[in-house]
């Protein structure tokens, strides 16, 4: 273990964390094996700060751990009952805002929203369900788009724009009317530039964007978050990559 000097360290819940300048609080925490709940963050994409699950208290002020830079000496409160209560309410908001029916979703077990809810022991969505009418777009030959499950994290927006150079997805509308739109003349995915090889096709943390023809290739019970709660998979969260090899080929083998 290298020395942790005060010039390049800060504390989370009293634990000393080393960081390299430029790292965000979330990046430094994950690198040090400390879990901070998050949904709209992915290590390969620019920080966004919209889901607010990673909100921590930094020197007494609330802030998103995914966008705030780590600074020497700051004191971060993270795994506290008050913050976890708030995070549970945020999850409940996301569950009632869309149509999340886990028993019929291919993503179940690999879904980050579900894993977060398990980990924070969310037993009920609590609030009145909006039951919105949202379309399912099956026009693309290789990819499903089911906006019923969308949590508006904009990971697909960022992956398509910044990694694929295509900007297939974009957030449109306002407030409760916000929704992801597809950049094509018809607004349909089949008419867009999206390819199954795009990173944007594989970055969705929930079951809104799914590859076709690979349903349940990995059985329920053997999926990413079946083995251990998401809070104990910090290494995975810190180092995960959006698959570059199309999931289809990988799984067909």
């Amino acid at each position: 273990m290298s020395d942790i000097s005060s010039a390049n360290s800060f504390s989370i819940d009293g634990q000393r964390i080393a960081f390299t300048p430029g790292q965000t609080i979330l990046e430094a925490a994950l690198a040090a094996g400390v879990y901070i709940p998050h949904l709209c963050h992915h290590p390969e994409l620019t920080p966004h700060g919209s889901c607010k699950l990673c909100t921590v208290v930094v020197n007494g002020r609330n802030g998103s751990a995914c966008t705030q830079k780590a600074m020497p000496g700051i004191e971060v409160e993270n795994n506290s009952p008050a913050l976890n209560d708030r995070r549970r309410v945020l999850l409940q908001m996301l569950f009632v805002e869309g149509n999340h029916f886990c028993p019929g979703c291919e993503k179940s077990g690999n879904c980050q929203l579900q894993a977060l809810a398990y980990d924070l022991e969310m037993l009920t969505p609590h609030f009145r369900h909006a039951f919105p009418a949202r379309p399912v777009d099956t026009t693309h030959p290789d990819v499903w788009l089911d906006l019923n499950r969308c949590v508006m994290c904009e990971l697909c927006v960022r992956a398509s724009r910044d990694l694929d150079g295509k900007s297939v997805f974009m957030l449109a509308g306002r407030g409760a009317e916000s929704r992801i739109v597809v950049n094509s003349p018809s607004g349909l995915l089949g008419d867009s530039e999206l390819s199954i090889d795009d990173r944007a096709a594989h970055v969705c943390p929930v079951g809104a964007i799914l590859p076709k023809r690979v349903g349940y290739a990995v059985p329920i019970g053997q999926r990413q978050f079946d083995a251990a709660p998401i809070s104990r998979q910090v290494d995975y969260l810190a180092r995960r990559h959006i698959p570059i090899v199309p999931v289809t080929e990988e799984l067909v083998k």
Partner: peptide
Amino acid sequence: VALGACAVNGGLPAQRNH
């Protein structure tokens, strides 16, 4: 006690809600 997905959030039958 709400026992199971349908009691908790309507479950699969609630997929008719739209």
